[in-house]
Design a binder for these strands. Structure first.
Lengths: 195, 195
DNA sequence: GTCTATATTTCGATAGAC
DNA sequence: GTCTATCGAAATATAGAC
């Protein structure tokens, strides 16, 4: 079911070549890092050659940008809803609860960003994007809000780091923990820090 | 005061060329990432050429390894002391207090590692180093220790992530906070999570 | 859409003069 | 200890056939 190069996803069986490229690239970028992953490797793992990639993406950076887009939305509406109002600890705790859920459901995309921070920042610097509005930028904005007590802001940052570490720091050591259980443990952590 | 290429540091005024190279490299690796930083850039910023670097270091990777060495000791004795015994939450809290202190006194070297995870892991994979004994590896070992209750281990990971985030997540938003104050706030966080 | 070339560039590394 | 000059490798990217 190809339509202008885009395939309709039927019960998750069919994926466009573009998406298959992104999946493979994500795995390799996580494992070896963006810079040390060559287009040849990505192509070989997909069963075709490097040149074919350029039919789907205009550059290596274009692949990275597409992956950034996957990440971009997570938590964005949430943070935007928090938006202009003064962030309180209670609101932050609510926000983090949904962030926990999203992270557990999308581990890889967050892992990708954690392990390729420099590469993703390089993207922003080229687009003189003024204020890039991704999760990390929004985060810094909130944590810099002078209307909020400093100690509260430190606690907000700490609680955010706590859940990231709970999900990612231990590598696969926590993989055996069922997601709902890990989730409730992390919600407990958030409560203890922001209550 | 040169002696076999090593200069004696007098009141912090004199630094060996080797150390000046490492300082510049560290700044660039933090800013642009290891892979996107060329030896030419490092050399130019120091006022000499790329080839001169090879008098002081045998390869680009050698520079990274030297920086890793700077990092290597931090928290190592502490974690080794924790060593074979079963880690408890109380011991972990003590450990983190000293980690907080070291991180605040050496922000840049931790930032370097946070932003170049993939590059540093690449080092380990080449030396078939068996069990590389750096902080991160020790961390995973402790967090995988099945003798400890799962919830406790999650809390240990979370508290570690909390202090990292408190120091690094906000970028320079927290730079205005005096170190002692930030330290005591983070110690409060640790207490709340592990008590 | 994927292929086989090949162009182009960048970078790490070496040789040898001073 | 630093220089100039150059090598060789690898990677991104392009051209054009199928």
């Amino acid at each position: 079911m190809a339509l202008a190069g885009v395939e309709i996803e039927v019960e998750g069986e069919t994926k466009s070549t573009r998406e298959r490229i992104l999946d493979v690239a994500m795995d390799l970028f996580i494992e070896k890092g963006y810079d040390k992953t060559s287009l040849r490797e990505i192509a070989e793992q997909l069963g075709f050659t490097k040149a074919a990639l350029y039919y789907h993406f205009s550059s290596k950076e274009d692949i990275l940008m597409a992956l950034h887009q996957r990440f971009h939305d997570f938590g964005r509406e949430a943070l935007e809803e928090l938006g202009q109002q003064v962030p309180t600890k209670a609101k932050w705790a609510d926000l983090l609860d949904s962030v926990i859920e999203q992270m557990l459901a999308n581990r890889k995309i967050f892992l990708l960003h954690e392990r390729n921070q420099a590469a993703f920042e390089g993207l922003h610097n080229e687009e003189h994007d003024a204020d890039h509005d991704d999760l990390q930028a929004q985060l810094k904005r909130v944590l810099s809000d002078a209307r909020v007590d400093v100690e509260d802001r430190v606690r907000m940052a700490a609680s955010f780091g706590a859940i990231i570490a709970g999900i990612f720091l231990a590598g696969d050591a926590f993989d055996a923990i069922p997601s709902p259980q890990l989730r409730s443990m992390l919600e407990g952590v958030v409560t203890d820090l922001l209550r």
